[in-house]
Structures are given as C-alpha cells and as structure tokens.
C-alpha cells in the first residue's frame, strides 16, 4: 500500500492531568474519505485540532505527507498548511469581510496572482458550492447552511490536497446536510482530494465514507470500511449504530447525593 498522506502515531493528549486522547494511531490514504465518528466528548475535535497542527500533543506524532508537523521547520509547516483546507464547525468566516473577500482572502495572502485572475477563481469556487449569487453578502446575512458552504469554498480556494471538515452537518436541516454530503463527494470525485470528516451524524457518515474510525473516551475502538464497521460487535459501536441511550442516572450514587442534598442521610440511618 502506498504511503499514507496523513499518519497519526501514538497521539496522546492530556489537559490538566486529564487524558483526552490515549495513544491514538490512524492512517489516512491518499484520495479517500475518512470519517471520524464519536460521541460528544470522545475527543474527536481534539484529534482534528492536532491533525491540522493547531495544538501540540503530549506525546506521539502527526505526519502529513511524511512530514512531522510538530517537528518541522516553519517553511515546511507553511507548505503543509497550504496543501490543507479546513472548514470549521462554526464556519469561522471573517465577519468583517464579504463572502467574496473571505474566499479570495487566502488567494490574495498566499499567491501573487493578478486581481482579474483572483476574481475568476473566487467566482468559480463560489459557483462550485452554489453561492455564485451571494458573493457580495456579509457572513452575518447568510443562513447556517450557506455559511458552511462558504467555509468549504474558502477551504478549497487554493485547491488543497487534503480537506478537513469539522461537523459539516451539525445544526443543519436534513436537506441542507444532504446537500453538503453531495458536495463532499463531488469534491472527492472532481479533485481527487483526501477528505477527513469529523461528525456524529450516522446517515451522513455512511453516505460519504470510504472508511470510518470511531473514537470512544479518547481511544480508537474501530477503523474499517462501512461493511466491516456495520458488522463490528463492539458494544459501544452497536450502541452508537442502534442509537441506544446511556442510562441517565448512575442510580446508587445519584440517590445518595439526592438524599444528602435533602438532608435525609441522617434520617435514613
């Protein structure tokens, strides 16, 4: 098998003594859509922030195109970041710039292209996500779905090799979310991008994924294709796929605490 474009080895992250990620290893191949699944608080956003190099791990390495992003020179890091587009959960559009200027911001900052070329590129990127008519609007004037699409357009502005999505469908209605799924598949097909998506939306995950990985309490409990994943007997995966809730009250401890609060501890004994 070819060298993976992203390889995470033994990634361990601790915040104030609490272990958020525990020796996680994952390889992402060139041209595949990898979906990182996990419940709230499973550490998936933390993992994503380490893969895109926003934070330094406690231990372990993250290699992108074979380069260790925490041990490389500033120039190498810059090259890697130019090859990687990130669409954040909150879209993270620059509020002081129009949608158009948001899209052409990385082009203006990182290239020396002439203005007419930039204009054409911006229009094409906007058209690719269906926002051709909305270039003049300000981010505040966009709906949730449009914001996310604009974020995708900005992330793809420099035609990156790798595209990273944090929760693309969170907070969107099913129709808009489905539209984003199709957009992701289109980007993969049209530009052969490697795409990493972090989500907890099952339907969307199975629609777009080539392979899935599941994080639970800071550890990867499964990595595999859709079929392998659906057949996995791990109880947590079963629970996730079957949408079974956790018991809400850990009864004994909760009961005791309620008694304490009500001042009944003494009365009982």
């Amino acid at each position: 098998m070819a060298e993976p474009i992203i390889s995470v080895e033994g990634l361990t992250v601790e915040y104030e003594g609490k272990r958020v990620l525990d020796s996680v290893s994952l390889e992402i191949q060139r041209g595949e859509v990898m979906v990182l699944l996990g419940g709230s608080g499973s550490g998936k956003t933390t993992m994503l922030r380490h893969i895109i190099g926003l934070e330094r791990p406690t231990a372990g390495t993250v290699r992108v195109r074979g380069v260790d992003i925490n041990g490389c020179s500033a120039e190498e890091l810059k090259a890697i970041r130019c090859a990687m587009g990130v669409a954040f959960q909150e879209a993270a559009l620059f509020n002081s710039l129009s949608v158009e200027d948001n899209i052409n911001f990385p082009i203006r900052e990182l290239t020396t292209l002439a203005d007419p070329v930039i204009e054409i590129m911006t229009y094409m990127k906007l058209a690719a996500v269906g926002l051709a008519e909305s270039g003049n609007l300000m981010p505040q004037e966009l709906s949730g779905g449009m914001k996310k699409r604009a974020a995708v357009a900005r992330a793809t502005a420099l035609d990156p090799e790798i595209l990273v999505f944090d929760e693309p469908s969170a907070g969107l209605d099913p129709i808009v979310a489905a539209g984003l799924d199709e957009l992701i598949l289109f980007l993969k097909k049209a530009f052969q991008m490697t795409i990493l998506v972090v989500t907890h939306e099952l339907a969307s995950a199975f629609r777009i994924a080539d392979r899935l990985a599941m994080l639970y309490r800071g550890s990867l409990i499964a990595v595999g294709t859709k079929d392998a994943f659906q057949a996995d007997p791990h109880p947590r995966i079963r629970q996730f796929l079957d949408r079974q809730p956790d018991p809400i009250t850990q009864s004994a401890a909760v009961q005791t605490r309620i008694r304490e609060l009500a001042g009944l501890t003494g009365a009982k004994t």
């Binding site: 890091l77 990687m84 909150e90 559009l93 990182l110």
Partner: peptide
C-alpha cells in the same frame, strides 16, 4: 471564539 484566528493559522497566515 469564532475560530477566525484558528482559520488564519490553518491557512498558513
């Protein structure tokens, strides 16, 4: 808070 600073960093700016 809105991740705009993070977004800049990931764009190598």
């Amino acid at each position: 808070v809105t991740s705009e600073i993070d977004a800049m960093k990931t764009m190598a700016i």
